[in-house]
Every structure is written in C-alpha cells, then in structure tokens.
Nucleic acid binder design. Structure first.
Length: 589
RNA sequence: GCUGGCGUAGCUCAAUUGGUAGAGCUCCUGAUUUGUAAUCAGGUGGUUGCGGGUUCGAGUCCCAUCGCCAGCUCCA
C-alpha cells in the first residue's frame, strides 16, 4: 500500500488503529509546519501531511523552492505558533461545505482528496488558530504541546504517488516529547551516517564501485573473504539442516521464462540478449532452473522433501535511481533454496526453515525479530482450499515454536502465501532479511510430479526461502549493524602483528607463519614506524587482535595481545595464544 | 524512470566577481629503531567524469551525456 493510500485510509477508515500519543503529536506538528509555511509563503497549497516512522512530512505546492536556508525561518514561525498554544478544534463538516471551503482557499489538492473519500464517510476539519485542515485527527490539545521539533529535509514527491502527476515539495520534519529525545534522535542519525556501509566499506577496503558497471560491486580480497565466510557459514547450516547445494546455469533460452511466467511479469527487469538467433535471458531468480533440475529425473515420494540450495549469481535490471550501495544492486546472489515437498510436509518444512533462520540471526547478533505472514491476495491462482490449508500450516509452524507474528491480510504473492522475517539492527532500524514463500504455481507450470505410495502422481509444493536474502544486501546491513567491527571469525584480517623494531621482524614472521598454519588470517606490519602509528593503523582497520612484539616477547617466545577496543592483555606464549584463539577465529558450528 | 543536488589526485577536501589547479592522508625514497591511537625530510600523482558550446581566457557560465547522492515511484 502506498503512503498515499495509507493516508486516505487514515482519514476515513475508523478501523485504522488509533495513533499513538507520539504519532498524534507528530501529526499535529505537521499541521503547525504547514501553518508556518503558509504564513511565510501565502501561495502554498497543501496536499497531505501524515506522520512517519520517525517524524512527519507535508507535501506542498508553491512557487518558492524551499532549501535548507529556509528551515530556520520555518522553525522560528512554528515556534511562534506553538508558543501561542492554539487549541486544535475538531469540526464535522458536510461534503459540500468542505468542497466550498477549500475551493475558496484555492486548496485544489484538498478538493481532490475529498472526491477520493467514500460517500458515506464523515468529513472532519481541524482548526488551530487561523489554520484549518481537512483531517481525521486526532490531535494534541493545543499547539503548545509540541515541544521539540526540527525541519529535517526537503525532497520531491508526486501528488498521489503518481509519477505522471504534479511534483510537490515534501518537507520532512520530526518532533519529540522533549529536547533530550530529539537530541538523542539526531545523535542516532549521526551514528548511522558514520556507519553507512558505503563509507565503512571504502575505509576498510572491502568493496568499490565503478561507472563501467553501474550498481554492481567489486569486492576486494578483504571483502571477498568476508563474503565467502558468510557463504561458508550458511553451508555449514545446510549440512545440519539437510540441504543439497546445486549449481545451475546463468543464462537460459527465454522459453524457460515463458514457462515460469517471468517473461510476462518480470521481463522489464531482465538482461536479455540474442545469440544464434535465439533469445536468451540472464536469470533474475533461481527457481525456474531448479524446476528443470527437479524434473530431470522421476521423483519418488521417498525422495521428498528435496532441498535444493543455490548461491547462483542473479542479475536484475533495477531502474536507474533505485539502486543503493550494496543494499540494492544489479548483480548479487542469495542464500537461496527451494524445497520440493508434499502438501503434508509443508508445515514441518516451514518449522525447519524457521528454526534455521532463527539460529542464523542469533549468530549474527540480531536479537530483535518481527515476523509477518502475508495471506491470499484478491487475485490469486490455485484452489481456495489449498490456500487455506497452506496459510494454516504457516501459522501453526510459527505457533509451534512459540513465535509471535502479525498478519498482512491480502499481501501475499499471487502464487502463494509467505512469511517475512525482519530484524532490527544496533540502531533499531528495521531490515527485511529472510522470507519463506509457498508456491503452488511453478510446480503447475513446469508439470512437476512425484510418484506416491500407490503409484499415483502427486504435485509437489515448492517453498522458496532465503535467510540472509541477498548476500550483498546482508553484507551492507551487517556492516552497519557492527559498525565495521566484524567478529573475529568474519574479520578479513584477524590478527595484526606489530613488531616494535627491525630486530623483532624475524620473530614476527615466525609468529605469522605459526598462525597461518592454523588457518588464521594474519598481517604483519613491517613498516619503519613507531608502535603507536602501527596500533592506530590496525585499530582504524578494526582488526580484532593486535600482537605487539618487542625484546621481551622475542626473549620469551611470546606475544603481547591488544584488542581493537584498546584492552591490552597479559603476555602469553605463542602456543597458548594460538590455542586460545583457534575457536574464536573459526566459523561457528 | 521522475524531481532536485553533486562529480577537482587512490581517499578527504581547497581554488576571489571567469584569469597559471592546491593541501592533508595514501603511495614511493631516505633518515630514524621506536613498548600500546599519528617521527622527520624529500618525491610521485590531475586533459577538473566524458563530449560539445560561449569567451581573449572555463574547475567556475550554457547544452548534452554518464555516474553518484536525497526523496518519490518501483522491488510480480
């Protein structure tokens, strides 16, 4: 649902959940901001002004182009309005009177908005001082209740989200119950800026981009090390959870995508080429290829469930302007798998996948989790009964593990219901990572079968599932979650060896060799620099462990460890150190 | 794709109203041999994203194009 639709719904639909006190205050702040802007630029015409997750905005049309230099003026004007403590007054109004009122004011967007509201809805106005707005409310008691606010940014937005419609100026602001909370929020934004994976990735030399391949990352040796370790960890899970990893082609005759339906629905997002007078497509998803492999031999019910995992590289033509760092790219791979099972096995398979996903997120330190089930949309394919059974299976698989979830009614794909997993990172930002999607369509389209116990023919259900989602995207999200401080097992350089003077180089090389022999990723800093400089370098690169080597260490065939957080450990023998580190440095089970 | 903004050395950034492109870090040389977050000196490095135009003269102004950034839309 677009923001615009939500806004319309909010204005008219009494079943929309009541606003929280904070949301109410922010929405009121949007009115105050609109009031302020109209005072400063009387030609301003208002569209919509809802609250958002961390503030509010108002879409406005006017001659003057707003810029950051205007923010202080707007804030000052808002301060006058809040100081005046104008009460918010609710007023029911007839449709005709409302149209008349807003037409008189030249508020054409409001007039249009009224037309979009169902006939039987009660229209309400809210007045505060001389300002009046079409609004369902609720609002705070008076403008003085808005204590701490700030104009954040300005951006373009379309009227009603229609890219052919008029472009409006969207003014973003935020508001909090007190100055302290606002300050905290602004600090969080600062922190997020510092952690931006595009910045950190550059600083740590993990990946880069080049205009020669837009929206397609180049991973350096260090970045690829992390990337491969993520895969290695997932592969370990696959062994325990009974997956077989397969490898499938990159480019297929378009016929495949005609069969799968991607040609019809997804063609605009595909890279397509003509070779040998045949039309080929680079795969945007693995599922059609997996169906081919499934169909390649006769399948017995005894083989099911079949769990095909695939780290195949995918290419999607994302429209210019929608790409973003590692989180939205044109080439990526997923920790993708498709489970082919009987309808009876669905519940237990969902439960298994869920268990693995939870284990995986715990490993990466994502403690907070939100789960959503999306159910049958209005237009769907397949039998109603199949859908009902599948939705019940999803719910009971989650309930069986004592997991809370919310239901997004009608938000499922046309081919089946799904479960989405969202995590919150260290800055409490929400990211969708995992997904489990049932699919009744592809098995049908590809004519997939299995031989059942009575030598009859059954149709398998296909379960699409991913835990980390795209590895590229996860890389970016995780990099921000840990602010570049990878745990030792994932760090591209796990140990940095820092000899103090040239005469310690031999011992440094010996220590490095011993660690490398145990599979530990080591770097030796042989530069002719002071120890402080070397420590600074390794710390900035977020190397988890530094080993300082001087006369004392050479003498005792020992090492003096220091962590990137500045903690220095007691001197210990090389032997003891390696043994202590071995587990921490290896991929979790 | 749409609206707006931005592209100067590998990185972070300077460059009066249009008037000879600079600094720090990185890198390379040398000196220094250092005990827990920055040793000193010297040097390399740019057709100012690419292509046109205006001008005596363009990093600066105009057009076009590519890329990036913010937001919108999209992400069956």
């Amino acid at each position: 649902m677009s923001e615009h639709e939500q806004e319309i719904r909010h204005m008219i639909d009494p079943s929309v959940p009541e606003l929280t006190p904070l949301e109410t205050m922010r929405h009121s702040a949007a009115h105050v901001m609109a009031d302020a802007i109209k005072r400063l630029w009387p030609d301003a015409k208002l569209a919509f002004g809802p609250h958002t997750e961390d503030g509010f905005y108002y879409d406005i049309a006017m001659e003057h182009r707003l810029g950051p230099e205007d923010f202080e003026r707007i804030e000052a004007e808002m301060a006058k309005i809040t100081a005046a403590k104008h009460p918010f007054v609710r007023e029911e109004i007839s449709r005709n009177a409302a149209v008349e009122l807003f037409e008189e004011e030249g508020e054409r967007f409001k007039v249009e908005a009224i037309a979009a509201i169902p006939e039987d809805a009660v229209l309400t106005l809210y007045r505060s001082g001389d300002f009046v707005d079409l609004c369902r409310g609720p609002h705070v008691e008076h403008t003085g209740k808005i204590k701490a606010f700030k104009i954040m940014s300005i951006a373009g937005a379309y009227w009603r989200g229609d890219e052919n419609g008029p472009m409006l100026q969207r003014v973003y602001g935020t508001a909090f119950p007190d100055r302290k909370a606002l300050k905290q929020y602004l600090q969080m934004l600062e922190e997020a800026k510092k952690r931006d994976h595009r910045k950190v990735g550059k600083e740590l030399g993990l990946f880069t981009f080049d205009p020669i391949a837009p929206a397609s990352p180049f991973f350096t040796g260090k970045g690829a090390t992390v990337y491969n370790l993520l895969q290695a960890y997932v592969r370990k899970l696959y062994v325990r959870y009974g997956y077989e990893e397969i490898i499938t082609p990159q480019i297929f005759d378009m016929e495949l995508f005609h069969t799968s339906g991607h040609y019809e629905h997804y063609k605009d997002n595909m890279f397509i080429c003509d070779i040998d007078e045949r039309e080929f497509g680079v795969k945007p998803m693995n599922c059609p290829g997996h169906c081919i492999l499934y169909r390649h031999s006769r399948r017995s019910y005894r083989e099911l469930p079949l769990r095909f995992a695939d780290f195949g590289r995918l290419h999607r033509y994302e429209r210019a302007g929608v790409t973003h760092g590692l989180t939205r790219v044109r080439t990526f791979c997923q920790d993708d798998a498709h489970i082919f099972c009987t309808p009876e096995q669905v519940e237990q398979e969902i439960a298994g996948v869920t268990k693995m996903i939870l284990e995986c997120y715990r490993t990466f330190g994502f403690e907070e989790l939100e789960i959503e089930i999306s159910t049958r949309p209005e237009s769907y394919l397949g039998e109603l009964e199949t859908w009902d059974r599948a939705e019940a299976a999803l719910k009971s698989a989650l309930e069986g593990q004592g997991l809370d979830y919310v239901i997004n009614e009608g938000d499922g794909a046309f081919y089946g219901p799904k479960i989405d997993f969202q995590v919150r990172d260290a800055l409490r930002r929400s990211w969708q990572l995992g997904t489990i999607q049932l699919d009744f369509q592809l098995p049908e389209r590809f004519g997939l079968e299995f031989v059942d116990q009575e030598d009859g023919r059954g149709r398998p259900v296909m379960v699409h599932r991913a835990m980390l989602g795209s590895l590229e995207r996860f890389f970016g999200v995780y990099l921000e979650h840990v602010a570049g401080k990878f745990p030792t097992w994932l760090a591209p350089v796990q140990v940095s060896i820092l000899p103090i003077a040239d005469r310690h180089h031999a011992w440094a090389e010996e220590v490095a060799a011993a660690l490398r022999a145990r599979g530990i990723r080591v770097e030796v800093d042989l530069r002719s620099e002071k120890l402080g400089q070397k420590i600074r370098g390794a710390t900035l690169q977020r190397v988890p462990i530094m080993l300082v080597l001087g006369d004392k260490e050479v003498e005792a065939r020992a090492v003096a460890p220091r962590s990137r957080d500045g903690k220095t450990g007691a001197q210990e023998t090389l032997e003891a150190f390696v043994n202590r580190l071995a587990e921490e440095a290896s991929i979790p089970a």
